[in-house]
Amino acid sequence: MTALYRLLTGEDSSAFCHKVTDALAKGWVLHGSPAFAWDAGAGVMRCAQAVTKETEADYDPDRRLGEQ
């Protein structure tokens, strides 16, 4: 069994929510609370959400985590 970890990031928008929802639909599980920070340079709120996934396959660093 292999444990995978990803940190999803993006602007606080529906696109970020869709990114997290897509990960959940593909078997990833929320890990901890989301984080938010104001990006004064860009004038936007930034979000981050950690997700994890247990898989039977071996970890392959040459493959994107979202494809494992």
Rank of each mutant, 00 (worst) to 15 (best):
D12N: 15
A25L: 02
T55C: 14
C47D: 05
E56M: 03
H31K: 09
K19Y: 09
R46T: 04
P34V: 00
L65Q: 10
Q68N: 13
A40S: 12
G10V: 01
M45H: 10
D39G: 00
A48E: 07
P34D: 04
L4K: 01
E67P: 03
A3N: 12
H31A: 15
A37V: 06
D60N: 15
V29W: 13
Q49E: 04
L24F: 12
H18P: 08
A37F: 04
V44S: 11
L4T: 07
C17E: 14
V44P: 07
G66V: 00
W28G: 04
T21F: 05
E54A: 14
K19L: 14
D60G: 07
R6G: 02
T9F: 02
C17F: 06
D12E: 11
H18G: 01
R6V: 10
R6S: 01
S33K: 07
D12W: 02
D62C: 12
G10K: 00
R63I: 10
L24T: 04
G43L: 00
W38F: 15
K26W: 02
H18Q: 10
W28P: 03
T55R: 04
S13M: 07
M1F: 08
A15M: 07
A15F: 06
Y59S: 06
G43T: 09
V20N: 02
G66T: 06
V51W: 08
T2N: 09
D62Y: 11
F16H: 05
S33L: 12
Y59A: 05
L24I: 12
G43E: 07
L4E: 09
A37Q: 01
A50K: 00
A57G: 09
E11S: 13
S13V: 04
A37G: 00
D22W: 12
F36R: 03
R63N: 07
Q68A: 14
F16M: 08
V29K: 15
D58S: 15
Y5R: 08
G32Y: 01
K26D: 12
E11L: 13
E11W: 10
A25M: 06
D62P: 08
A15K: 11
A15C: 08
R46H: 05
C47N: 01
P61Q: 06
V44T: 13
D62R: 07
A42C: 06
E67N: 13
A40W: 05
R46L: 14
F36C: 11
D22T: 08
G41F: 04
S13I: 05
F36S: 15
D12M: 07
G41D: 15
R6K: 08
G43I: 05
W28Y: 11
V20H: 02
T9K: 03
E67W: 05
S33Y: 07
Q49A: 06
T21I: 09
M1Y: 08
L30C: 10
V44I: 14
Q68K: 09
D12L: 03
V29A: 15
A57I: 03
L65K: 08
D22S: 13
A57M: 01
V51M: 10
D62Q: 13
H31G: 13
E56G: 14
D62V: 07
S33V: 05
S14G: 13
D12F: 10
D58M: 07
